[in-house]
C-alpha cells in the first residue's frame, strides 16, 4: 500500500494535481506518553514529474503538517499522461507512486 494518493482534474485545458502523503512529519520536539522525545522524522524532498520529466523539486522542513498535502497546477497535461510523485525523508525512507490523467 503506497503512502501516496494522487488525484488529477482537468480544468479549462489545465490540470490540477493534488497529492496527499501519509507521513508523521515529526519535528523532534514532541514527547510521547512516557515523556520521551520523539525523534525528528519528516519528508525532506518531493518531486513531481510528468512523463518522466521532473517539473517540481520541493525541499521542505518539519514545519509542514502531518500527512502533507500539496496542490499544483499544470499548464496543459493530456489524457493518458503519467504523473509521478516521489519523496525521501530524513531517515532514508523513500516512496514513489504513478498516476495517469483521465
Amino acid at each position: 500500500m503506497s503512502s501516496i494518493k494522487i488525484r488529477s482534474k482537468r480544468i479549462d485545458g489545465k490540470t490540477q494535481v493534488r497529492v496527499l502523503i501519509a507521513h508523521p512529519m515529526e519535528h523532534g520536539r514532541n514527547r510521547d506518553k512516557a515523556n520521551q522525545l520523539i525523534p525528528a522524522h519528516f519528508i525532506q524532498e518531493l518531486t513531481l514529474s510528468l512523463n518522466q520529466k521532473v517539473l517540481v523539486n520541493c525541499a521542505m522542513g518539519p514545519s509542514i503538517s502531518k500527512d502533507p498535502y500539496f496542490a499544483f497546477m499544470l499548464k496543459g497535461g493530456e489524457i493518458g499522461d503519467q504523473i509521478s510523485i516521489a519523496w525521501a525523508d530524513n531517515l532514508g525512507n523513500k516512496d514513489a507512486a504513478d498516476h495517469v490523467i483521465k
Binding site: L55, V56, Y69, M73, G76
Partner: peptide
Amino acid sequence: MLDASVST
C-alpha cells in the same frame, strides 16, 4: 510548465 500556484 506549471502555473505559479501551489497549495499546502
